[in-house]
Write a protein that binds this DNA or RNA. Structure first.
Length: 558
RNA sequence: UGACCUAUGGUGUAAUGGCAGCACAGCAGAUUUUGGUUCUGUUAGUCCAGGUUCGAGUCCUAGUAGGUCAACCA
C-alpha cells in the first residue's frame, strides 16, 4: 500500500540540493540535441529524464539546440526534433534556445579568457597538435605558441573572427596542463575557423566554438541547475568546471547517467544513417527504426514510451534493456486504448451449409473489453466467411481446441459452428474450403443448452470484408547485439531478412473510416496502426506488435 | 600501458551499516466469448580476496571484469 517510491540517484541529488538551498531551491534542466539527425529512443530517455525531473520538482526545462558545428546541421533536423519532443508530450513554452544565439556572448567569454592569460591562439596543424598532445600514457608537451602575449592573442583572435585566416590555420586553445592525465585538459581547442554558412547565423561568423566551450557556458547563461548528460561526457566535467570557474560565471552542476541500450537494436546515429542511405529501410521513419518518428509510425504511443523510460531506471552502470520490456509497455498501453476489430491474415473459406442463402445478420461486438466507454459496433455475418488458416488443422495435436474435422468452435460474437466436411484441391491436396453447420440457437455465441466449446475464433464475412495491405514488421536484427559478428566487422550481416512481410488481409467493414495512426487490436493477432500511406481506397496497416501467444509455446513443445 | 567510472537473479533497478525487494522475461495454475487481459503461485542474485564492525550488497585495501578518454564532432 504505502509503496515508498524508490528514487534514482539524480532525484536524490536534486532533493539534496533543494534541501540545502544550493540553487535557491530552483530546478532548471535542458534537453540539448545537436540538430544533425533524428531523435531515437535513447534520446527519449533523456527527454523524459530532463522534462520529468523538472516537472516533478516544480522546475522548468529548456529545449536548446547545440548548433555549434554548421558542417553537419540543418533546420530540417530542428523541425523534426521539435515535433518529436512535442509528440512525446513535453512542453518547453517559449524556452527554445540555440547555442548560436549566444555566439556573441561566447566570443566575449573567449576574450576574457585570453585577457586572463588562460587562452592562446595556436598555429599548430592538426597533425602537429596530435603529436604535441601525447597519449593516454605519455604526457604531451607545450605548443610553441603557448606563450604568446595577451595582446598578440587578442589581436590574432580578432583577426580569426574577421576572416583573415583560412580554415584550419589557427585555433584558440585553453591554457591548462599538457601533462594532465585527462586528455581533455591538455590545452583543449575552444574555437576553430570554419568558413561555412550556418543554418541560423548565416555568414555572420567564420569562427565557431567547440562543444566544450559552448555547452557549459550556455548552461550557465540559461541558469541551468542540473546539466544532465550521458556517461561519455564524464571526462569533460573537469573542463566544464574549469571554464566556468575561470570565467567567473554562474555554475550549473553536470551529472552523468548511463545511456539506453536495447537488445536487437542499434542506436548509433552513423549506422542508422547507413541503414537509410543503403536502402535497408525506407527512411528515418521506417517502422523498424528506433527513431521516435519510426516508433510513432510503427504505432507506439507517447504514453508507452514515457512509461518505458520510467521503468528502465536511471543509473551510472552500462545497461542493455531487454526489448521485451519495451513490448510489455507497448501492449500494456495499447490494451487499454485500442479498438478491437476482426481481421483475417491468411484466409480459409468456410461455407455454413445450413445458413440461409443471402441472409445477413449484424452481430453486436464489444469495441474494447477493457473500456466500457468504448461501446460496441455491428459486424455482418453471412453464409460465406473467412477464418484464419491457422485455426483449422486436419490432424491436430493434443490441446488444439480450434477447428478440425468434427469439432465445434465459437465464431466470436456469432454462432457455434461444427466442421462437417473438408474440401481439397484435387491436385495439390491443399485444403481450400470447409463446410460447416451452425447452431441457430447459439446466436451471439452461447448455447441455451449450456454446451461449452473450448475454442473461439475470429472471422469475417466474405462479401462484406474490406481488403487491406498489412505490413508485418519484425525486429531489424537477428542478434541481440547487432554489432556482434564473428569473423567480420559488419553489423549488416545481422540484418533480419524477414523484418518486413507485406500481405493482404480481410477485415471487417467498421475500419473503413480509420484515420492515420489510429490504433486497433486485430483480435487474436496483434496491434495494428494505420500507416501514412493508407487511403480510403487502399487501407494500409502496420503491425505494431503481436499479441502474446501462449499457444505457439505449447505447440512448439511437441 | 595511465587516469577516471562501474560491478545485486537471464535483463533492468531498489535496499543511504540492520529481514536482499520490485518490474520484465521464464515456469506452474485459476479465470476468460481474444490460447489476449486479469489473478495466484514459483524458479533465480550481492564479481573475488582480505580488513573495519555486534552486524557489510553498502565502508576501507588489493585483485578481476566491463566501460570512457589520445576529432579543429557533439
Amino acid at each position: 500500500m504505502k509503496e515508498t517510491e524508490s528514487k534514482h540517484f539524480i532525484q536524490e541529488i536534486v532533493e539534496d540540493d533543494i534541501r540545502s538551498g544550493k540553487f535557491q531551491g530552483r530546478i532548471h534542466t535542458r534537453f540539448p540535441p545537436e540538430p544533425n539527425g533524428y531523435l531515437h529512443i535513447g534520446h527519449a530517455k533523456s527527454i523524459c529524464l530532463n522534462f520529468g525531473l523538472a516537472a516533478k520538482y516544480g522546475g522548468l526545462t529548456n529545449l536548446r539546440f547545440d548548433d555549434t558545428n554548421p558542417v553537419k546541421e540543418d533546420t530540417e533536423y530542428v523541425d523534426s526534433i521539435k515535433e518529436d519532443v512535442r509528440w512525446l508530450g513535453f512542453n518547453w513554452d517559449d524556452r527554445e534556445y540555440y547555442a548560436s544565439d549566444y555566439f556573441g556572448k561566447l566570443y566575449e567569454y573567449a576574450v576574457k579568457l585570453i585577457e586572463k592569460g588562460k587562452a592562446y591562439v595556436c598555429d599548430l596543424s592538426q597533425e602537429e597538435m596530435a603529436q604535441y598532445r601525447g597519449t593516454v600514457i605519455q604526457p604531451g608537451k607545450n605548443s610553441p605558441y603557448r606563450d604568446r602575449s595577451v595582446d598578440e592573442n587578442l589581436n590574432l583572435f580578432q583577426q580569426m573572427k574577421n576572416g583573415v585566416f583560412p580554415d584550419g590555420a589557427k585555433v584558440l586553445r585553453a591554457k591548462i596542463d599538457m601533462a594532465s592525465p585527462n586528455m581533455l585538459l591538455r590545452d583543449p581547442i575552444l574555437y576553430r575557423i570554419l568558413h561555412i554558412e550556418h543554418h541560423r547565423t548565416g555568414n555572420a561568423w567564420c569562427i565557431y566554438p567547440m562543444y566544450d566551450f559552448a555547452h557549459g557556458q550556455c548552461d550557465s547563461i540559461e541558469k541551468i541547475t542540473h546539466s544532465i548528460c550521458t556517461l561519455e561526457f564524464e571526462v569533460h566535467r573537469p573542463l566544464y568546471d574549469w571554464l566556468i570557474r575561470e570565467l567567473e560565471i554562474y555554475a550549473p552542476q553536470q551529472i552523468e547517467f548511463a545511456r539506453l541500450n536495447l537488445t536487437y537494436t542499434m542506436m548509433s546515429k552513423r549506422k542508422l544513417l547507413e541503414l537509410v542511405k543503403g536502402g535497408f529501410v525506407s527512411g528515418w521513419d521506417d517502422p523498424r527504426m528506433p527513431t521516435i518518428c519510426g516508433l510513432r509510425r510503427r504505432g507506439f504511443t507517447p504514453e508507452s514510451l514515457r512509461n518505458f523510460a520510467e521503468k528502465v531506471g536511471v543509473a551510472r552502470r552500462d545497461n542493455v534493456i531487454d526489448i521485451s520490456l519495451l513490448e510489455f509497455c507497448l501492449r500494456e498501453d495499447l490494451n487499454k486504448r485500442a479498438m478491437r476489430v476482426m481481421g483475417i491474415m491468411n484466409p480459409l473459406k468456410v461455407t455454413i451449409s445450413n445458413y440461409p442463402e443471402n441472409q445477413v445478420e449484424w452481430m453486436d461486438a464489444v469495441n474494447n473489453p477493457e473500456d466500457c466507454a468504448a461501446g460496441s459496433r455491428k459486424i455482418p455475418f453471412s453464409k460465406e466467411i473467412y477464418i484464419e488458416r491457422d485455426d483449422f488443422m486436419e490432424d491436430p495435436p493434443k490441446k488444439y481446441f480450434r477447428l478440425f474435422p468434427g469439432s465445434e468452435v465459437r465464431l466470436r460474437y456469432a454462432y457455434f459452428i461444427k466442421c462437417e466436411e473438408v474440401l481439397k484441391d484435387p491436385v495439390t491436396g491443399e485444403v481450400i474450403e470447409l463446410r460447416c453447420s451452425y447452431d441457430p440457437a447459439s446466436q451471439g455465441g452461447n448455447s441455451p443448452d449450456g454446451r461449452k466449446v473450448k475454442g473461439t475464433i475470429h472471422w469475417v464475412s466474405v462479401n462484406h470484408a474490406l481488403q487491406a495491405e498489412v505490413r508485418l514488421y519484425d525486429r531489424l536484427f537477428v542478434k541481440e547485439n547487432p554489432e556482434d559478428c564473428e569473423d567480420c566487422d559488419d553489423y549488416k550481416v545481422n540484418i533480419n531478412p524477414d523484418s518486413l512481410k507485406i500481405q493482404t488481409c480481410f477485415i471487417e467493414p467498421s475500419v473503413k473510416e480509420a484515420a492515420k495512426l489510429d490504433k486497433f487490436q486485430f483480435e487474436r493477432v496483434g496491434y495494428f496502426t494505420v500507416d501514412y500511406d493508407s487511403t480510403p481506397q487502399k487501407l494500409v496497416f502496420n503491425r505494431t506488435v503481436t499479441l502474446k501467444d501462449s499457444w505457439s509455446k505449447i505447440a512448439g513443445k511437441d
